[in-house]
Computed example of a mutant assay.
Amino acid sequence: MEWINASEQNKEKYFKWEEIYFLGKHTISDERRAMAEQKLLARIEGQERKNKAKIITMYRFMKYAAVFVGLFVISILAYWHFDNESKSMIRFVTAEGETKQLVLSDGSKVWLNENTSLEFPKIFEDNIRELRLNGEAYFEVTSNKHQPFVVKGATMQIEVLGTKFNFKNSENCRIAEASLLEGEIRASGNANEGLITLSPGQKVELNAYTRQMKVSDTDAEVDALWHNDFVQLTNANIYDIALLLEKIYRVNIVVSPEINKTNTYSGALQKKKNIKEVLEILSHTMHFNYKINKQNIFLSVE
């Protein structure tokens, strides 16, 4: 049939062969010959219709198959794109004297202190929120019980569910430390130096050389003072404030016993460039005189 359909000459030749065949068997009339030709033509046309139907069916199949394959490829590319998007890492670095605030994809807030780098994925994975810290940072973590928040340092790591804490751990620091302001955190050494749970107002330290961990009470707001430059005080007397200023400015303060301890201060204590500016403000509120001699400061009654 393929040979017959190849050309009109082949069709005519085939008709003659058919005629010779029938004439060899018996003599046929023109009428019967015409009927035979019609039957043969009908068979040829029927076969052509079948072939066309097969071609149309195959075309439709290929068209739908192409659509399916296209959608499949698009799906794979989309998955690859978004999977790579979620796994792509972001790295922030601060220079000397620079601090920077970040908002992560889960809504958590991070403040980076100077000379600090923080690395984290653009989109957190389904089961964990993991970051790598080299330096010091303050965190306000969005609560998510099903997705722990883990900060890994050079020697220690911190795991939280939702909290505020300060974490300092760089590659060249001797003591890694974390202070907790709110919530709860779990601290552990990268070499399995125990697992310690902290409460607000506590600090954990890990010695990089002795590999020992210890917990102590701390003023966590003071530890994290660098990120917003103020501490909220409530009914703080002169001795409380003197201790606070010693920590912030690394000075020695001597308070005269004649100063009234019942005078208190409530409000935000703003960090200034030098302690003289702070003392000048407090002296008008708490009524004392001050004298500065290098790193030593003396407070007395007016």
Rank of each mutant, 00 (worst) to 15 (best):
E85D: 12
V103Y: 11
V93W: 00
R91A: 07
L112R: 03
L77Q: 04
V69E: 05
E125H: 10
Q101E: 14
S105Q: 14
I76Q: 10
I123S: 15
G97Q: 07
L40T: 11
A95E: 12
Y21T: 13
F82N: 01
R49Y: 09
E31M: 04
G70S: 10
E98I: 11
I74L: 15
Y21V: 04
V103S: 13
G46E: 01
R32D: 06
F92H: 13
G97R: 06
W80M: 10
V69T: 15
K50R: 09
E85F: 14
R60E: 09
T116D: 00
S75A: 12
K25T: 05
F120D: 02
L40C: 05
A36W: 02
G97V: 04
Y79G: 05
E125K: 15
S86M: 08
V103D: 09
G97E: 08
A34G: 07
G107M: 09
V103L: 13
R91F: 01
G24K: 14
S108H: 06
L102H: 10
V67H: 03
E130Y: 06
S108E: 01
I56D: 11
N84L: 06
F82A: 00
N115C: 03
I90W: 02
S108N: 03
Q47Y: 10
V67N: 03
H81N: 05
Y59L: 11
M62K: 12
T94S: 10
E130S: 14
E37C: 04
L71E: 10
S88Q: 08
F124D: 07
A42S: 10
A36D: 04
K52D: 02
F120T: 01
K100G: 00
K52L: 04
Q101V: 04
H26Q: 12
T99E: 10
M58S: 12
E37W: 12
I128T: 15
E31H: 05
S75W: 08
K109T: 09
E119F: 01
R43H: 04
K100V: 01
A53R: 08
T57K: 13
D30N: 11
I128C: 14
N127M: 05
I123T: 13
L41Q: 15
D106G: 09
A65E: 06
V110D: 03
G70Y: 02
G107N: 06
Q101I: 02
I55R: 13
L104D: 01
K54V: 09
R129W: 02
S117Y: 01
V69N: 07
M58G: 04
L104C: 03
I123A: 11
L112Q: 04
R129P: 09
V103T: 15
F92D: 11
A65L: 15
S117H: 04
F82S: 06
L112T: 04
G97K: 08
F120G: 00
M58N: 13
A78N: 11
G107S: 09
Y59D: 07
S88N: 08
L118T: 02
A53Q: 11
R33H: 14
I128M: 15
T116E: 01
R129V: 03
K63S: 14
M62T: 13
A95L: 09
F68W: 14
L40F: 13
E31P: 00
V73C: 15
G46W: 00
I55C: 01
L104W: 02
Y64N: 14
K100I: 00
D106N: 02
G97D: 07
A34V: 00
P121F: 06
V93L: 07
P121W: 01
D106R: 08
K25P: 02
T27V: 12
E85R: 11
